[in-house]
């Protein structure tokens, strides 16, 4: 028993040490700026999933700007880096956009396993807490037991769920959900869709059909089309965001699973390229762990 405690302590320390070295601590001690320092920064950015292209751009900027501002030490360079990252991400600061129609419809999409159903559940809890009446539409009729998973969430947060059988037409589920919400005067419908790889064209078309169904009730809806990205995924997230945006006009991003050691640095190239607002980040399993996106805090966590 004693041994295991020591082991764990050691492991914990190791982790801290590693995190420090990865988190640019070298900058804190650097008295002068040289090539190896930039390499260190490059390494840290790549390690955080920022990606080659964006990293190269940022490094170029740092090199030029540090000369211009006559930056002398690592601390200043780190500050400059933070500034730059916050500047990039600030364009994507986003809030949930509700219009106040009865109902407002929020459509969730993403690839398999990105955390859509869980995000729907957490957001439902958040909205319930604000006193809104929420309906969950179980439009993932494909994955085994997806409907049951959403049902558990509906129970947990006290929301009404509209569902059909497994294998049913998702658009029909959505129609029923919005229709009944309209009849009962509910505030918000959250639509959980099946996970789909963005490379499957017919599934992307199905999304468009769901959207059209929603628009039959109101041309202003869905008021949000949220793409759920898995924070542990690397450069493929850029591709996902691109393709989903093209297919359905994504209005916002929710990035999940940032409670591990993944940093979600891929948001930087996504932000740079696509300018899609980031609405929430998921940092844990509890209902409270769905938080609004704050660029400053995010960069702080990214750089450690």
């Amino acid at each position: 028993m004693f041994k295991s405690v020591v082991d764990r302590l050691k492991k914990g320390l190791n982790k801290t040490k590693k995190q420090l070295s990865e988190s640019l601590s070298v900058l804190n001690f650097a008295r002068s700026i040289d090539e190896s320092l930039f390499e260190e920064v490059e390494f840290a950015l790549l390690k955080a999933d920022v990606g080659v292209e964006a990293t190269e751009e940022i490094i170029d900027f740092l090199k030029k700007e540090s000369k211009k501002r006559k930056i002398k030490d690592g601390e200043q360079l780190k500050q400059l880096l933070k500034e730059k990252l916050v500047e990039i991400l600030s364009c994507c600061r986003g809030q949930l956009n509700l219009i106040g129609e009865k109902p407002d419809v929020i459509l969730f999409l993403g690839i398999n396993g990105s955390g859509k159903t869980t995000t729907v559940g957490k957001l439902a809890a958040l909205l319930k807490r604000e006193g809104k009446s929420v309906v969950l539409a179980a439009a993932d009729t494909f994955r085994a037991a997806a409907i049951e998973q959403l049902e558990v969430w509906a129970d947990r947060v006290g929301a009404r769920i509209v569902k059909h059988q497994a294998g049913a037409d998702p658009a029909a589920v959505v129609y029923d959900a919005v229709n009944s919400a309209k009849a009962r005067g509910d505030d918000i419908v959250l639509v959980d869709t099946a996970g789909r790889l963005h490379t499957k064209e017919h599934l992307m078309k199905e999304l468009q059909k769901i959207k059209k169904t929603i628009q039959k009730f109101s041309p202003n809806q869905p008021c949000e089309t949220l793409l759920v990205l898995d924070g542990t995924i690397g450069q493929n997230s850029i591709k996902q965001a691109e393709v989903f945006k093209q297919a359905t006009d994504v209005t916002g991003i929710v990035i999940t699973k940032l409670d591990g050691t993944a940093k979600g640095g891929v948001l930087i190239p996504i932000c740079q390229k696509l300018k899609i607002p980031i609405k929430f980040i998921g940092v844990g399993e509890d209902i409270e762990d769905l938080q609004p996106f704050d660029p400053e805090n995010f960069v702080e966590a990214l750089l450690g």
Binding site: T232, G234, Q235, S237, A262, V266
Partner: peptide, 12 residues
């Protein structure tokens, strides 16, 4: 392992 995982995949 998800084949799309990023840099932290290996740590995990």
């Amino acid at each position: 392992a998800d084949s799309m995982q990023g840099q932290e995949a290996i740590e995990t």
